[in-house]
């Protein structure tokens, strides 16, 4: 009995060294050598300052930008140190109210067009970097109007930013909002 207890203690100590320290350090070393940018979060810098991560969404509210999805992470949404979904159940009145509020706004921006589901639903992470191609298409008239551009010009930019299914099979087509807005501003 006492022998097993000693072995338990020693086993915890030595396996912690191997699995809890050596393993993550080795993976970090390999990752930092082989995929430095990806291992550090694909940060985008402009003029020496970090302006975001390529794969973490940001909030946008100005009419001249494409807007990200609703986010439940933090007060302004997109708090990347506090990832969170709404966790509203399908019959929760708060969900219905939020969706109706957003619908009312979107319907004045682009009257008559069907509102794609992803534009009025909160993402799982609260940090979803993407909207669906339909979600981008829906916003083209507003962005073009605000910037006094031809819709076709904005649409070409959107088309260039549609990322197809990975290996033509996996996931869903999508548009990265931050990259699209950076392109709009010519950055």
């Amino acid at each position: 009995m006492k022998k097993h207890l000693i072995t338990s203690l020693l086993m915890v100590i030595w396996t912690t060294v191997l699995l809890g320290l050596v393993y993550p350090l080795v993976v970090t070393g390999v990752a930092q050598v082989l995929f430095k940018d990806k291992a550090n979060g694909q940060l985008i810098t402009r003029d020496g300052a970090i302006i975001g991560s390529r794969i973490i969404g940001q909030p946008f509210s100005g009419p001249g930008y494409f807007h990200s999805r609703p986010s439940a992470a933090g007060n302004a949404g997109y708090d990347a140190a506090n990832s969170q979904g709404s966790n509203f159940g399908p019959t929760n009145q708060k969900l219905i109210d939020r969706v109706q509020r957003d619908l009312a706004r979107l319907n004045t921006e682009n009257p008559g067009a069907p509102v794609p589901a992803d534009l009025v639903t909160a993402s799982a992470s609260g940090l979803d970097p993407d909207i669906s191609p339909a979600g981008a298409e829906f916003q083209i008239p507003r962005v073009a109007r605000e910037r006094s551009w031809a819709e076709e010009k904005v649409r070409r930019l959107v088309q260039a930013h549609i990322r197809p299914r990975q290996f033509a099979v996996l996931g869903e087509p999508r548009v990265n909002v931050l990259e699209l807005n950076l392109a709009l501003d010519g950055k």
């Binding site: 219905i96 109706q100 509102v115 992803d118 909160a122 993402s123 799982a124």
Partner: peptide, 28 residues
């Protein structure tokens, strides 16, 4: 979700549709 009236939840080439609350666009 049938309670989300006025939302286009139909799957198509432009969107995955369906109940997207709490889901990510890249996974659909």
């Amino acid at each position: 979700n049938p309670l989300l009236k006025g939302v286009d939840q139909q799957a198509g080439t432009m969107q995955a549709g369906g109940n997207m609350e709490g889901k990510e666009v890249r996974f659909g």
